[in-house]
Design a protein around this nucleic acid. Structure first.
Lengths: 336, 336
DNA sequence: CTCTTTTAGGAAATCGCTTACCTAAATGAA
DNA sequence: TTCATTTAGGTAAGCGATTTCCTAAAAGAG
């Protein structure tokens, strides 16, 4: 059986399609009687207006694109969940796009999203070259950068203060007596770099600049991460604490250490970043820097919708939220 | 600047829009010369055909809906990742829908998807009442049930053999000498129930039927899960092993036990289900039953596309894959 | 009881594309 | 050279809404 269209409803209700449209959108002048009648017919025919047709005739598509490196990564999974949740409340759908940090995929997805006329795009990846950006702007589709740095002339941004997060972690570890620390993070990602910078800055301020061999870059691939941790732990003297720019890396570190017989936190303290669910689930529970994801998500969607509805413009607003230390059980004090 | 339409291209290239359309779709008879010329103009104007308009004029929307309980749950995150990945290769986009197991949300999302004319819907949730199903069928939008039981008259299905998975886990634990085991799982989910049934069946066969107090239902909510595990461990005699219907529950169990001072696996063995990434990351690494997600995803999309393209019909094919035991370090042998 | 103003609802263009059908020119056959 | 085919490309209807006029009828004014 074919789906009912506005024409079917109009015919069955013996009115024009204009009238049906007006009933659906609650516009124009329609008598109570006609309105009710049309509504009944709509129900009877199980009529649902086609978003496709609606969009073609000038209205919004009520669809947002979300670019993340990998939806299976718990941090991005959580981000997506939050965004989706808020979008749903506002009757928006979300097309998810995992780019795996490959510029190729990113371009493909952007093209796909533009062809689908999404109302806006949320970008939680670091890539995005000039040309792609130009293309998006040309179609004037609003962009919002999420949890990654944005250029105020290009796009609105909602992030946490990564630098400050690193700084907080550093102060915390330093105060606990850890002066010999190792750092691990994905230096190809700007946000993670900032976290490390914040960390390093604090240590420099304390006259304990961190040496290069105690800073290792690794992406979120399990085997690579393990190797990176190993290298870090093989330093002499061995660091008494590790700061990882993501919980994932922190957890890998805990495991590697435990497997090597190094006790966490007695012999090695670890601080992560993000406060994903597994920070609570890992053993021992991970001390980490929390990003206020829920709030960020809410702000992101609302900001984006403001731009979509034409309420904002260049220079784009940048919202920076403050991260927070969550103390659990992976950090011990060193008595000097 | 407005986006270029087929009219812009036609005008600029001094041909009719029909010609442009034919060039885009590689149909009809167009001379090499005209074809190239039109292509050049398309490039010059940065023209991308609108999926909206294409869809309205009868073609596919190239969009699939995916219903999961919660995208932030690593198992479903992984599923989504796999599905998205394969969909992308085939130029399909995915709208993700987290239902949180609430029938309300499910209905909302189904309506949303239907209005958007998605070409098909992949359902990885257990709900879905009769009426909603009827609605979907009425719009004849194909459905594929993923990792959950399906009725062959209703939809195609791709699942693992949950019963067998439970059975395998049971045999493994039994052979290791565990006769007093506790079970935890979400009994409101059919697939998890099947896993437990498979498990119980094996034990019954071995004349070691499992008592009711050793079977506890819990969903994937952290605090509830913790309570459930506690109850399980408070049984006398305390079980020597636990079988959890998801890795998440298994990991919660490991943590609770560890925190209570019960050593895993020396004093308590644990077997999970799904083999999500955290099965490798938890401490100790989790022995679990793997679902061949990658393969399931591939099959799912391909099956669904077959139906979409009208190559299949009632009774719908049911594909059942075999789960596999992944041995890691959470099970010990008991010497009797 | 006219004449003006509302009110209720319809006609038709439009959005950007696909496609069936049509036609003029080019080619081939006899 | 003439007639039948191909070939190349155009015309126009249709997809399912929205929206801008329009107009007839009803209501109100004087």
């Amino acid at each position: 059986m074919m789906r009912a269209t506005i024409y079917d409803v109009a015919k069955e209700a013996a009115v024009s399609i204009a009238t049906v449209s007006k009933v659906v959108n609650d516009t124009g002048q329609i008598s109570e009687k006609t309105r009710n009648h049309v509504k009944q017919v709509m129900k009877k025919l199980d009529y649902e207006p086609s978003t496709i047709a609606t969009a073609l005739s000038g209205k919004k598509t009520k669809t947002l694109g979300v670019l993340v490196p990998n939806i299976a990564n718990p941090f991005f999974g959580e981000i997506t969940r939050v965004l989706e949740n808020i979008a749903r409340e506002l009757d928006y759908a979300i097309i998810i796009c995992s780019t795996y940090n490959q510029p190729e995929r990113e371009k493909e997805y952007i093209t796909l999203l533009l062809r689908k006329h999404v109302d806006g795009i949320i970008i939680a990846t670091e890539q995005l070259d000039e040309e792609t950006l130009r293309k998006i702007n040309k179609r004037d589709t609003p962009i919002l950068k999420f949890s990654v740095q944005a250029n105020p002339n290009e796009a609105t941004g909602v992030t946490t203060n990564n630098f400050e997060g690193g700084y907080i972690a550093a102060r915390y570890l330093f105060d606990k007596g850890h002066h010999q620390v190792g750092l691990i993070g994905d230096l190809s990602r700007d946000s993670e770099k900032k976290r490390l910078q914040g960390f390093c800055d604090y240590f420099e301020m304390q006259q304990h600049a961190i040496q290069a061999s105690y800073i290792i870059s690794s992406d979120s691939e399990l085997t690579e991460a393990k190797k990176a941790v190993d290298r870090l732990l093989n330093n002499t003297p061995r660091p008494t604490a590790l700061f990882a720019t993501t919980d994932f890396l922190a957890i890998v570190a805990i495991n590697s250490a435990t497997q090597k017989g190094i006790k966490v936190p007695e012999e090695l303290s670890v601080v992560g970043f993000d406060n994903t669910i597994y920070a609570q689930l890992c053993q021992p529970p991970l001390t980490t820097i929390e990003q206020p994801i829920e709030e960020m998500g809410k702000l992101a969607i609302h900001q984006l919708l403001k731009i979509i509805n034409g309420e904002k413009s260049i220079p784009y607003e940048q919202i920076v939220l403050t991260p927070k230390l969550i103390e659990r059980q992976t950090v011990s004090s060193i008595n000097l």
